[in-house]
Amino acid sequence: MTSETLVEINDLNFSYDKRAILKGINMTMPRGKVIAIMGGSGCGKTTLLRLIGGSIAPSSGYVKVAGQVVHELSRDALFQMRRKMSMLFQFGALFTDLSVFDNVAFQMREHTNLPEAVIRDLVLMKLHTVGLRGAHKLMPTELSGGMARRVALARSIALDPLLIMYDEPFTGLDPISLSVIGNLIRRLTDALGMTSIVVTHDVQESLKIVDYVYFISEGVIAAHGTPAEVRDSVAPFVHQFVHGEEDGPVPFHYPANSYASDLRLGDRFA
């Protein structure tokens, strides 16, 4: 990796109620790339995003964004840093009491003193990028799931961030919307020179657009590599995940007592 590193994660541990969720994660994410983080449901992918965004603090280790350790920042400095990053939530999380236009304009109005005429032009430009300039008067409730996701995308690039995190951007979309969003992520990353972190379990769609993939399983990085490497990987976990097999290194059964003892061949509740 030749280009400059934007996000650096070093020996990151996080536990919740003594339950270790992330164990010794190391990652480097260069500027201008699309990085996918994949893994089964509940493996700690979203937790990782929240650690990068500074919503929670790690138990040990650190996340560095643009050279600053996130969890050591004061609240003001953290808010300052968050102006450079943005996050696309699973279902868009558009502000339901504001119109599409006001949603995209939200951060410009909160963080800048731009005149309303400039904001108007900027908002229409952002909406044009995602192909929804014509929908600026609608309310979020009038949008389909894919359109809402696109508006949320326009909102998250409102202040031209360095880093965008996508939390499951492909969930619940039809195939057309899905590839629209996928291509938008790729195009925007290239056009704006920012870094995208895509947390997803949609393997096929994301392998088409990303530069690098990390697989997380049970709190550790199980495998990583470029999409080509991943497709050809013979590692059992990657193989299971990419091809969607039911059983394998990711077990079908949740960890449990032995079947026999659970079907009480004992006397504990007598």
Partner: peptide
């Protein structure tokens, strides 16, 4: 109901991530 729903649909979390309290 409004604030609760904004929380449930992650609007408050989104706002927090946009550096707006």
């Amino acid at each position: 109901a409004e604030i609760g729903l904004m929380k449930a649909t992650e609007q408050l979390a989104a706002m927090e991530m946009m550096a707006v309290d």
